[in-house]
């Protein structure tokens, strides 16, 4: 069994809502992430999916400590990194990097490509003699050419910029990369290029990815395991094929049935969800999904469901209506 590189336990991020001009008082909280637990094994890709506002990006950023979590544990290689500060936190950035969604906003327009890619190395005092060849090597690795290094971001297309962002993330040889919607701003043909590149890099550098996206087909393609989020919670998590073929949670079922597939012959039974996502500042009691769930019962309105094993494999869901499967304890 491969070891867990990252373990997240009961992670919460509540953004306070304050009122009052002089002495602001907290009147509530947006529960962006509300008790999320999962693990990531070394070398695998964990997909994190959900609709806008479900807390998937906040989860990603809380792991990196770009947003300080309100509560909970983030264990990286066995160490709880949630409370890291200052130098300790800075050192951690060598190992965990992030790729952002918007390749237009995440590159400094006044820096050349070379400066952008070597910036992390500069921050960690890598000598210039090593930096320069590394920049050229990285440019080759991500499918650009060394002569691009004197250019500025505006001279590149969206897909090329995303490649620059990837080269920057790789510059310190990280182990874990959090990819926050890395391809959603790109056209399909370019998206496929970047997805292929990310898969190649994973093999070459033995990387572990947390791949955050709302596009379920891309997540299906790239992930080994997938976690589905709804209103700040994980409602279902499991091995990718098992979860896509045999979704247990009604939200996952609805989400999967909503994807339009590029196949005009396929007539599918779509589960239509009524209404919109409730506000995370005032989430429903009980199961957070019960207001939109087509199968909700009395129990769902009162009692909050916990993640439980729903198959003998690696597959858990948080729903009262799904029967728990008791796994045989592993003998030996």
């Amino acid at each position: 069994m491969t070891q867990n590189l990252l373990e997240v336990n009961n992670l919460k991020k509540h953004f306070p809502i304050k009122k009052g001009a002089i002495l602001p008082k907290q009147v509530g909280a947006v529960k962006a992430v509300d008790g999320v637990s999962f693990h990531v094994r070394k070398g695998e890709t964990l997909g994190l999916v959900g609709e806008s506002g479900c807390g998937k990006s906040t989860t990603g950023r809380s792991i990196l400590n770009l947003i300080k979590p309100t509560e909970g544990e983030v264990k990286y290689k066995g160490q709880n990194i949630a409370h890291y500060k200052g130098e300790q936190l800075r050192q951690l950035r060598k190992e965990i990097q992030i790729i952002f969604q918007d390749p237009y906003a995440s590159l400094n327009p006044r820096m050349t490509v070379e400066q952008i890619i070597e910036e992390p190395m500069r921050a960690f005092k890598v000598p210039a003699s090593e930096r320069k060849p590394k920049v050229e090597k990285l440019l080759n690795v991500v499918g650009l050419s060394p002569y691009h290094k004197h250019r500025y971001p505006h001279q590149f297309s969206g897909g090329q910029r995303q490649r620059i962002g990837i080269a920057r993330a790789l510059s310190l040889d990280p182990e874990l990369i959090i990819c926050d919607e890395p391809v959603s701003a790109l056209d399909v043909s370019i998206q496929a290029q970047v997805v292929n590149l990310m898969e190649d890099l994973q093999k070459e550098f033995d990387l572990t990815y947390i791949f955050i996206a709302h596009d379920l087909s891309v997540v299906h393609h790239i992930s080994d395991r997938v976690a589905v989020m709804y209103l700040g919670e994980i409602v279902e998590v499991g091995e990718v094929e098992e979860l896509y073929k045999n979704p247990k949670h009604p939200y996952t079922q609805a989400l999967l049935s909503a994807i339009p597939e590029a196949n005009p012959h396929k007539k599918r039974d779509r589960i239509m969800l009524e209404g919109d996502l409730p506000s995370p500042s005032d989430p429903p009691q009980g199961c957070k999904f019960h207001t939109r769930c087509p199968f909700a019962e009395e129990q769902c309105k009162v009692e909050h469901p916990k993640l439980k094993d729903v198959s003998t494999g690696d597959h858990q869901a948080a729903c009262h209506l799904v029967n728990e499967v008791v796994k045989e304890p592993v003998s030996g």
Binding site: L216, L255, A258
Partner: peptide
């Protein structure tokens, strides 16, 4: 739009 909302709008 998100997929579940997209499905609603297309319908």
């Amino acid at each position: 739009l998100d997929v579940t909302i997209q499905a609603q709008i297309l319908e």
